[in-house]
Amino acid sequence: MSASNDPDMQGGGVADGAQAEQVSSAQRIKRALANGKSERISKNTSNAIMLGVFRVAAAITTLVLIAIIAYVVINGLPHISLDFIFGWPEGVNAEGGIWPTIVSTVYVTALAMLICTPIAVLAAVYLAEYAKQGRLVNIIRYAADTLASVPSIVMGLFGYALFVEAMGLGLSMFSAAMALALLMLPIIMRTTEEAIRAVPRYIRWGAYGLGATKWQVVSRIVLPSAFGRIATGIVLGIGRAIGETAVVLYTMGQAINMPISPLDSGRPMTVHLYLLANDGINMNAAYGTALLLMAIILAFNLFARWLSRKSK
């Protein structure tokens, strides 16, 4: 039997290769440390200084978040009541409650999720499991990352030009949901792809060894194993959609009514808050709306963290 076909020889070769790679990595690390600039202060002092810098940066970030939350809570909590939550706006939208805006927000977000999630998950499965890794796949990933960085005002104008004008859907829940789905798509797709890639390879190999097909492995093993992280990405995308203003302002309109059909118009909480604060109509209602909106987004983020921990 030749050495190339001997399993023991092959195993030894793999082990020698791994050991050689470890030695090479250790040599590169030693070389990088040796070629570095000579330190004017001791290692312990520089480590303590940088640790202090990191702690100060973390403290500043936390204090800014606490300050924003405290400001909104202090100004908005006195105006929160059942009448405010479940009532309807009165007069020139300066008094009364915000119940239609809450329904519009939940309606358009749920519709956007139903449109975006299947497309994003299927695209992620294709990129992670079926596509041949190369330049085309890298271009698709780059396009998704670029789409995630597009300003919401640009996406709102694009949604208005395409869905409202070109497709003739008008200012409606469906137009806004389609535009929001474009914002959610890269978040859910990239998160789902990373979740699928995080599933250990040996699980796939075991399934293939038992005679499972590619689709059976993906649908019955990979996706259930990655469900927790996929759900986290979906929740984060929903949180992004709830907090958007420009997109829904250009595609849904500002009408105060209870939407029934997807072709009905409406006014989400973000637009209602913007109009109240920008025109100075009723700052008390603006702070109350901001507090409820912040509570909804915070609840989605906490739910995403809970799903992430549960999946681990």
Rank of each mutant, 00 (worst) to 15 (best):
P259I: 01
S172D: 13
V72N: 11
A299E: 01
G237H: 01
L183V: 04
V125S: 07
L291S: 03
G237D: 01
G156L: 06
Q254Y: 10
L210S: 09
G170K: 02
L114F: 08
V271M: 02
G170R: 03
P100N: 00
L122I: 09
N138L: 13
E194N: 10
A57M: 15
A58C: 13
F84L: 10
Y126C: 14
L157D: 08
G168Q: 10
I139L: 03
A198K: 08
L185Y: 03
P89G: 00
K214F: 13
T117E: 09
E129K: 07
M178A: 10
V154Y: 06
N301Y: 10
S38D: 12
V218I: 00
S152C: 11
T61K: 08
F158Y: 13
G76C: 02
M294Q: 07
K132C: 12
V53L: 12
P200F: 06
G170M: 02
N93M: 13
A124N: 05
A176F: 07
A131D: 11
T61E: 12
T251Y: 08
L293P: 07
D264T: 06
E165Y: 02
R190P: 08
F86V: 05
P100L: 06
V199W: 03
L33P: 03
G288W: 00
P78T: 01
V56G: 09
D16E: 14
E129M: 05
V73Q: 06
M269Q: 00
L171A: 08
R55N: 07
I187P: 07
S149E: 10
L298T: 05
V73A: 13
N5Q: 12
R28K: 06
L307P: 00
